[in-house]
Write a protein that binds this DNA or RNA. Structure first.
Length: 808
RNA sequence: GCUGGUGUGGCGGAAUGGCAGACGCACGGGACUCAAAAUCCCGCGAGGGCAACUUCAUGUGGGUUCGACCCCCACCACCAGCACCA
């Protein structure tokens, strides 16, 4: 068979007959299958795309054969930094390179022969799409969930712009080489923290990999602790710390405040000013991972100020230290050197006192630092209490004297959404000197991204230089005003695309129709990399919950079921992705055809784990397909006696087991095992071929085999389906059912163990009762002698597998 | 560093706590052929043994269990994410 030629043929027929069109009238058995859409990066599809889209397409085809009306839309996450960097380097406008890349990728995805519903395609840089990105921003703004605040960013003084973490290489700007500093700047945020609790509890309702849920739980990082106010000496100002270990409050010997905290200037005394300034400057050159690393040396600088411990009345010094981060909790921590590892290191270094206020339960000689829960000592009336109880009692006392309160904290921070970039969705805000930040009226959406040619960064972001864009009248008061120059993080674009797909091209009146989207969503199965666990997957959940709260939809979670494909690596073990030279799937398709490529990918690596790409097995997949072809063509016209004996029974057993297990393997994305089962069926067919004679039976096996293989080799099986004289299309068939009776054997081999050691393997009838079964085993000629004179003290029976006799 | 994950023959990989290594590759052998390729069939973890068989073996070290690749603890190596790459 000429695999390459038949693929062209069937791609055309499928398209002409609109075989895979989604039937919007049959929503009762719809199946919304979605792969994370891709960034239109290089000039052509790399194997990673194939891995993601090709294999989940096979899953979709399997679902279709099971009778589902499969919706599998496709689109592009088209805004983003790479196109802009490319433009700065080459002068090619991001719009042009992006459109070009999309076109190439579309063609290749179509060649792949997927069931994608292109008629719903969406592209995030289309004004028709980003109109709704802007609309979403405005809804969040109206509810107070989009707001501006000062936040630390990477700033390159020479480029005069904010740069991304990935653009900082060894502390310098990758573009110009100057030293990058952390700096507070005014930024737009989405208040995702308002949803922290629900994002946490909602995880219990969705069918996601446990590891992904764990990642999100830890990312949200709920901790129940307390806030404590420490009054500043000789001032009315107070410093509020957050602690999850308020039981250690009697051990506080100092306070630590983050260098960029806004209260720092109020704390620094004249004598300490230059030292603190220098310290803060140095801290601004470090990134957060270095700062918070438990192994990097702790550094700090005394501010000159002291605070009063509200419970002990003790005076303790306040330090600035960069191991404290301003964005978590209050940005100030109480230093308890005896019971916190980092505080201990810090105290050692600066010769601060170390107090013991917790003992290991039942001991008085506990070594410091002791960071577990224990029993309090040196803690006034709380001495002798267990940590757990003391936490409650101490908060009660703090509340009574007005110096503290119970507090739940989350590590989750608000989502920073503004970017000083050109190639992104414009933020629909107008800054008016009189009215402040005013949203663009919804009737004026979209705010179209102007086509500029100078997108080099310059303080404000590239749009800031475009006067025609920036200068507008305030929608509220009509006076001169300026547009927001920043654009949105591309994660905003992708936070609702799954909601927009079902009506992407036709609904220009609303983001989506509520009745329809309630029927189409949630997405039944979502496929994408685990690297999105704490960002895209969290943002989408947040936005879905927000849209529910403003009455746009009726469900809480966007993705009911989730699978992560592993990463396909190049021969060098490196990522095959947008950032290194991508391998093209084209050459393989031209030589072996897309079905062989797809089969090889499915069989040779675990989908969930990925691994190093190896094309060695490709030619064998072609050989396997030819092996299938030979037996199918040989059997298609055979006539023979209508007998059903041992041979038929044996093949029927394999057939039915294969039908059952291939379906189970597909459900868990264990494609490699599914293909292995199909190979076993083919092997069994060849075995039957040497002796079996039942022609009708052979025809049935051939038909079932082709349907089982169809999701994994769509063109190939469609062609054979036609060759055996069946009606178009194989994808309108139903996945075969299996007969439980044919899978259950009359006799199975049982492993017989005595004291957990295998002593025999016996064929035993499955119909025996447990007593009959034990009787049969113990009286066996091999087993009986080993039991003579011994007493059986325990019998462990694992049905159809093993028996273990414990003897004395 | 923190969070999550992975580790099984020469290789990719199978195994609801129940006969470790399914299926495939590589390798060896046989059939077919003048021959080769292709195809079809058989064998194939390591050590010992002519053999029946036997010992060892799922990153390392412990533990739980009648029984552990699987559960628990500690460690080692590698991978992903760490909030402005998407």
């Amino acid at each position: 068979m000429d695999f390459v030629a038949i693929e062209k043929k069937w791609n055309k027929i499928w398209e002409d007959t609109k075989l895979y069109n989604f039937d919007e009238k049959k929503l009762d058995k719809k199946f919304y299958l979605l792969e994370m859409f891709s960034y239109p990066s290089g000039a052509s599809l790399h194997l990673g795309h194939w891995w993601n889209f090709g294999l989940s397409d096979s899953f979709g085809r399997f679902k279709r054969l099971q009778g589902y009306n499969v919706f599998q839309p496709m689109g592009f996450d088209a805004f983003g930094l790479p196109a802009e960097n490319y433009a700065i380097k080459t002068g090619i406008h991001p719009e042009d390179s992006t459109r070009h890349n999309i076109k190439v990728m579309e063609e290749q995805l179509k060649e792949m022969g997927g069931m994608f519903n292109w008629e719903y395609e969406l592209i995030t840089c289309d004004p028709e799409y980003y109109k709704w990105t802007q609309w979403l921003f405005i809804q969040l703004f109206k509810k107070g969930l989009a707001y501006q605040k000062e936040a630390p960013v990477n700033f390159c003084p020479s480029c005069n712009t904010i740069i991304a973490n990935e653009q900082v290489v060894d502390g310098v700007c990758e573009r110009c080489g100057s030293e990058v500093v952390r700096k507070n700047m005014r930024q737009w945020f989405f208040k995702i923290t308002d949803y922290a609790e629900e994002l946490l509890s909602g995880l219990d309702t969705i069918d996601w990999p446990e590891k992904t849920k764990t990642l999100q739980r830890n990312w949200i990082g709920k901790s129940v602790g307390a806030e404590v106010d420490f009054k500043l000496e000789n001032s009315d100002e107070k410093l509020t710390v957050y602690t999850s270990r308020v039981d250690t409050i009697y051990g506080v010997t100092f306070l630590v405040i983050a260098p960029e905290h806004k209260l720092v200037p109020k704390l620094v005394t004249k004598e300490r000013e230059s030292a603190v300034k220098e310290y803060i400057l140095n801290a601004s050159k470090k990134d957060e991972i270095t700062r918070t690393s438990t192994t990097s040396p702790k550094t700090g600088c005394f501010t000159g100020s002291y605070v009063i411990n509200p419970l002990t009345g003790e005076k303790v010094p306040v330090f600035v230290a960069d191991y404290v981060i301003s964005t978590y909790a209050t940005g100030i921590v109480m230093g308890v050197a005896g019971h916190d590892a980092r505080d201990y290191d810090f105290a050692k270094k600066y010769n601060l006192p170390i107090k013991k206020v917790i003992n290991e339960v039942g001991k008085t000689d506990t070594e410091l630092p002791f960071c577990e829960y224990g029993e309090l000592c040196n803690s006034a009336e709380f001495s002798g209490m267990k940590s757990e109880d003391a936490k409650i009692k101490i908060v009660e006392k703090l509340e009574k004297i007005g110096a503290g309160r119970k507090k739940v904290n989350y590590k989750l921070r608000d989502w920073s959404v503004a970017r000083q970039r050109y190639w992104g969705c414009p933020i629909p805000i107008i800054h008016c000197p009189h009215c402040g930040a005013v949203p663009v009226p919804e009737k004026d959406l979209p705010v179209v991204l102007p086509h500029i040619t100078d997108y080099k960064p310059d303080g404000k972001g590239p749009l800031g230089k475009c006067k025609e864009y920036m200068n507008v009248k305030c929608p509220k008061c009509g006076r001169d005003a300026q547009r927001e120059a920043d654009t949105l993080d591309t994660f905003v674009d992708s936070s609702f695309y799954q909601l927009r797909y079902p009506e992407s091209l036709r609904n220009d009146k609303e983001i989506f129709n509520r009745q329809y989207v309630d029927k189409m969503l949630p997405v039944d199965c979502y496929v994408g990399g685990v690297e999105h666990a704490t960002m895209h997957l969290l943002y989408s959940r947040f936005i879905t919950k927000f849209l529910r709260d403003i009455g746009c939809l009726d469900f809480d979670e966007p993705f009911q079921r989730l699978f992560h494909q592993g990463m396909v690596l190049g021969a060098d073990g490196k990522k095959m992705s947008k950032r290194n030279t991508s391998k093209t799937a084209d050459d393989y398709v031209k030589t072996y055809g897309s079905d062989a490529l797809r089969l090889h990918m499915m069989f040779s690596l675990k989908y969930i784990d990925g691994g190093i790409w190896n094309d060695e097995g490709l030619k064998h997949m072609k050989a396997f397909m030819e092996r299938v072809e030979r037996i199918v063509l040989k059997w298609k016209d055979t006539v023979g006696e209508n007998v059903y004996g041992e041979e038929e029974k044996e093949l029927d057993y394999v057939l039915n087991r294969t039908i059952k297990e291939v379906a189970e393997n597909f459900e868990t994305f264990s494609f490699n095992s599914a293909i292995a089962r199909i190979m076993e069926l083919v092997n069994a067919m060849y075995k039957y071929d040497t002796k079996g004679k039942n022609g009708e039976f052979k025809k049935k096996v051939v038909k079932d085999l082709l349907i089982l293989l169809a999701p994994s080799a769509p063109h190939f099986t469609e062609e054979l389906w036609e060759e055996i004289g069946e009606e178009y299309s194989i994808f309108n068939q139903r996945y075969p059912g299996y007969d439980e009776a044919k899978i259950s054997l009359e006799k199975v081999e049982i492993a017989v163990q005595i004291n957990s050691k295998i002593v025999a393997r016996l064929d035993v009838e499955t119909s025996l009762s447990e007593d009959e079964f034990i009787e049969k085993i113990t009286s066996d000629v091999k087993v009986a002698p080993l039991l003579s004179g011994k007493q059986i003290v325990k019998k462990i029976v694992v049905p159809k597998r093993l028996v273990n006799l414990i003897v004395k």
